[in-house]
């Protein structure tokens, strides 16, 4: 089987994979990084979003061999170096931006990609950017609020009542 080498969350990794092995399979099955979730088979739900050379991608729609030599960041690489929650992760907790947690890794990765491109996104920009991440629990209210908060914007007026 062909060998693939890449950097995942700052660590050089390699493994033997099949041609059909998806990046999501490689992360989950070969590296044990099960934070990247697979929620659909049509490239729609976004639970598997990771960063590939800095850009958000759906790991279920990239072949592992196509990530040869790439830098990959997954949800497991998002905490602060001391192990505490990163700014976006903390905002999701503070604003109850997750319930069952299944879509959460993809949401956080998409939010991180957005904030890299756009440091102070509007509500509409956040909603548009999260178009490819489906959440069934939260109604997105607290996710959008968390992303606004993570970008340093005041969310006190988006009180629930």
């Amino acid at each position: 089987m062909p060998k693939v080498t890449m950097t995942v969350n700052g660590m050089a990794v390699s493994g033997e994979v099949e041609g059909r092995t998806l990046l999501s399979d490689f992360l989950r099955d070969d590296l044990g990084l099960t934070g990247t979730h697979v929620g659909c088979d049509t490239s729609q739900c976004g639970a598997c979003v990771v960063h590939l050379d800095g850009a958000p991608v759906k790991a279920c729609s990239v072949f592992a061999l196509d990530a040869e030599g790439a830098k990959v960041t997954t949800i497991e690489g998002m905490a602060n170096p001391d192990g505490s929650l990163g700014v976006i992760q903390k905002a999701f907790q503070d604003h109850h931006g997750l319930q069952c947690g299944f879509c959460t890794p993809g949401m956080v990765m998409s939010a991180a990609a957005l904030l890299k491109e756009n440091r102070k996104p509007t509500e509409a920009e956040i909603r548009a950017y999260l178009d490819g991440n489906i959440c069934r629990c939260t109604g997105y209210h607290n996710i959008v609020k968390a992303v606004l908060a993570a970008s340093g914007q005041d969310v006190s007026r988006i009180a629930a009542e």
Partner: peptide, 9 residues
């Protein structure tokens, strides 16, 4: 087109 992750690829 699609969403940001789709547009990356």
């Amino acid at each position: 087109i699609g969403d940001p992750a789709v547009r990356s690829r």
